[in-house]
Nucleic acid binder design. Structure first.
Lengths: 333, 333
DNA sequence: TTGTACGCGTTATCAG
DNA sequence: CTGATAACGCGTACAA
């Protein structure tokens, strides 16, 4: 592959001149510029990003760490990042962290080796201190879907508690008194925050939520199915179920319908996230809209901004609030 | 960030020695090695991937070009690549091509600038010659979901025609005689190949497929809805509909159910791709399984292999065939 | 306006 | 076993 040197030789000019026309440098003769450009085109010249990154110490690329590309939630997240990086002509280095300490760490470290100064990372397995350290080390380090007070201005996150309240309030307003909750069995923050919000709303309504009305399972369709199965088996009575996410809600609906329990006629279901399947399943799922694409765009923008030298504003943070999307899975009783 | 030089100074050895311990070089004293390793750890040293790529001319990263991260099909594809690259300790450079000539080209060129010798690209907008040229230029250039004869051994693709035949044969075997087809309005190869297969099977069964029974729309849920709407409006009679993909099938089901047409009691629906939503929608979708994750893994492996210097075998190609997955959306009549 | 020379962080080739 | 030293491709002060 042709180098800057080859071009210089072919054009009968020096390396410096070629470099200048590549970067639209200031002082180059009109005709020299044209001549060099033509030669570059003829020889199919492409600047070597590695060499460039080496000397400029900037990489024009943004590192991304997410849990799992397969998951529609993360696909949406990735998409949000991709659209904004593309506008900035920035490449994405993508890694999956799998919500495992070792993997997440490895992913970030590899990104570090590539010297990308901008990163948006979704980490649930690493502890605060580790993340704070990375944030100190990398100017454009931004966390998504997590809030660490010490580095608030590097966090783009969702108010999960508010979300929990909202979903509970919605069914309460529809007259439901007996609620069931199917939550995630994984001990990360999100499920406990959402559950906390749910409890607040229920308590405020003067109702109780017995422990036996709460099921913990894997946060996917299968988990939703088994959770409902357990609830049904134990004879728990409920007219509404609040799910940890849309996948669980979908599984729940499947299992309820399999038991000839009509939705929402007999039981209402509320999801969380508003991923694509919420619109696809039947009945269409009433759920909480998680503006993850928007948040991801914001995170990417911040990462790029901070990486470019702008210091993050002190004391600020980027908190988003979910909103309820009413579709067909909730009925008034 | 500490460089190899800093480590050398701190350890009182030369650059060469440090480089050797980093790469597990052959001849280094046991104790020197330990000492250097400790210093590296203390100083938080991380090799600079850019510098390394510059001198070795190898990048330990694989470029990916797909249409759209949001689409579950591509998410699955990306996931397949990710799992195999992770095993090989290879970073992913991810780009979205949006099925647009300019964008796809730009994406590949950026990857080229990063000098990644391995790439798996999904391109529908670029012409054969352009792609062939890239294949010549990049040893590890592999196409996924496309077949170009001249570079067969760089192609991992699906036999779309066979798929079309299979889906048609399935409903024909179930006794259906009046079929409708909802296809994609985009003029890329896939829809015409699938349609060709469908036609072959129908013809072989001695049945006809009038043009008015075929609708072209955007290959998503909305397109599926409008396609069915058009069919219904025009009074076309059919007992089975073959969709271009699962999203369209899902949209079709929604619209049919909205018209109080039970599925599969009155109308059967078959999808294509077997993306995640096929299991989530109700009734669960009978569809063709597109082994895209497997294919993506294969493509990544080939790309890495070819990039490592192994020459692709002449005359070989990587053709996959879809298989029917029977769920609940097709009935015998 | 153009050219020279140095440095970015590594690897690799020689000598010792 | 270890150490100089020359690349790798490019950007950029400093000269000319």
């Amino acid at each position: 592959m042709a180098t800057i040197k080859d071009i210089a030789n072919a054009a009968g000019v020096s390396l410096a001149t070629v470099s200048r026309v590549i970067n639209d440098g200031p002082k180059v003769g009109k005709e020299t510029r044209e001549r060099v450009k033509n030669i570059m085109r003829e020889m199919g010249y492409r600047p070597n990003a590695n060499a460039r990154a080496l000397v400029t110490k900037r990489s024009a690329s943004l590192g991304v760490v997410i849990a799992e590309l397969l998951d529609p939630f993360f696909a949406t997240l990735a998409h949000g990042i991709e659209t904004t990086t593309r506008q900035h002509n920035v490449q994405i280095l993508m890694s999956a962290g799998s919500i495992a300490r070792e993997t997440e760490l490895k992913a970030i470290e590899t990104l570090l080796e590539h010297r990308c100064e901008a990163m948006v990372v979704h980490s649930k397995a690493l502890d605060d201190d580790t993340l704070i350290e990375f944030a100190q080390q990398v100017p454009g380090f931004v966390l998504i879907n997590r809030h660490i007070k010490k580095i608030s201005n590097r966090c783009v996150w969702l108010d999960n508690e508010a979300g929990g309240r909202l979903m509970a309030e919605h069914v309460l307003h529809q007259g439901h008194k007996k609620l069931a909750v199917i939550s995630s069995k994984y001990r990360i923050d999100d499920p406990v925050e959402r559950l906390t919000g749910i409890r607040q709303a229920i308590q405020a309504a003067g109702i109780s939520l017995p422990d036996e009305n709460i099921e913990f399972a894997s946060p996917d369709q299968e988990g939703g199915e088994t959770a409902i199965q357990n609830l049904l088996t134990r004879g728990v009575e409920f007219s509404a179920v609040l799910a940890y996410n849309d996948a669980m809600a979908s599984g729940a609906m499947t299992m309820l319908l399999d038991h000839n329990i009509p939705i929402p006629a007999q039981v209402s279901v509320v999801g969380y996230d508003d991923v694509i399947l919420a619109k696809y399943c039947r009945p269409k799922l009433t759920t909480l809209h998680y503006p993850i694409e928007l948040m991801a765009s914001k995170a990417a923008e911040l990462a790029l901004l901070y990486a470019s030298g702008i210091r993050p504003q002190e004391g600020i943070t980027y908190k988003y609030t979910p909103t309820i999307v009413k579709r067909e899975s909730v009925a008034r009783i």
